[in-house]
């Protein structure tokens, strides 16, 4: 069944996002929860992880698309406008800016401030450089929040709150719905962590 939609309308409303983390941190789950939360909000969404026999600790990347219109693309995101970095060091050795055109939002789980992150990225300390002026850098210490509330440094649900606040693409009530469905017995704590992230994330 082919869905006929106007390309211009689609282009305007399509948001392409990449999530970065390490195997075992729940990046795939985070992508699924975010797309499900977006769907609860009446949007179309799709999360495409790099599928494979991934090792715990190795890099894990997930492509996410959110749109008001049905999504025709069936491939990984190559020009993301939003980056969400779940692991505080993953960006030291993989180029998270690949395809990022200097315009959009970047969310970091880090102890550093947005200013400090900007400095490191524009200096090109890790072999790739941030250019452009249309970017926004958001930071929070999701590892601390997760460890304190959930008892372990798994940041996937915590980062959902940060994503919701920074991008406004998913509402917290829909994040709650998605978390409740996925983790029926641990929903309360996971939601608490997401809410704290929502309230504590800072912008450059």
């Amino acid at each position: 069944m082919l869905i006929e939609i106007c390309q211009m309308a689609v282009m305007e409303e399509l948001h392409e996002i990449k999530l970065f983390g390490r195997g075992g941190q729940g990046i795939v789950t985070a992508g699924n929860l975010l797309s499900e939360a977006a769907a609860h909000g009446g949007k179309y969404a799709q999360s495409i992880p790099t599928f494979g026999p991934e090792r715990r600790g190795g890099p894990s990347i997930c492509s996410l698309r959110i749109s008001d219109k049905p999504i025709l693309l069936r491939c990984a995101v190559t020009t993301p406008e939003t980056l969400c970095v779940f692991d505080p060091t993953i960006w030291h050795f993989i180029n998270i800016l690949l395809g990022f055109e200097g315009e959009g939002k970047m969310i970091f789980n880090t102890q550093h401030s947005p200013n400090e992150i900007e400095e490191v990225l524009t200096e090109g300390k890790y072999g790739y450089k941030l250019t452009g002026s249309g970017y926004e850098i958001w930071t929070l210490d999701a590892t601390e929040i997760s460890t304190r509330i959930l008892g372990r440094p798994i940041t996937n649900t915590t980062m959902l709150g940060a994503f919701s606040k920074a991008t406004e693409l998913v509402e917290m009530k829909n994040v709650e719905k998605a978390i409740g469905k996925r983790f029926p017995t641990a929903a309360e704590d996971n939601m608490k962590a997401a809410e704290e992230a929502f309230n504590s994330i800072k912008k450059l």
């Binding site: 699924n32 797309s35 499900e36 769907a39 179309y44 969404a45 799709q46 999360s47 495409i48 992880p49 599928f51 999504i71 069936r74 491939c75």
Partner: peptide
């Protein structure tokens, strides 16, 4: 249907 790209991608 295509493995992973359809089999494992959740959608509305």
């Amino acid at each position: 249907y295509d493995g992973f790209i359809v089999s494992h991608v959740a959608e509305r």
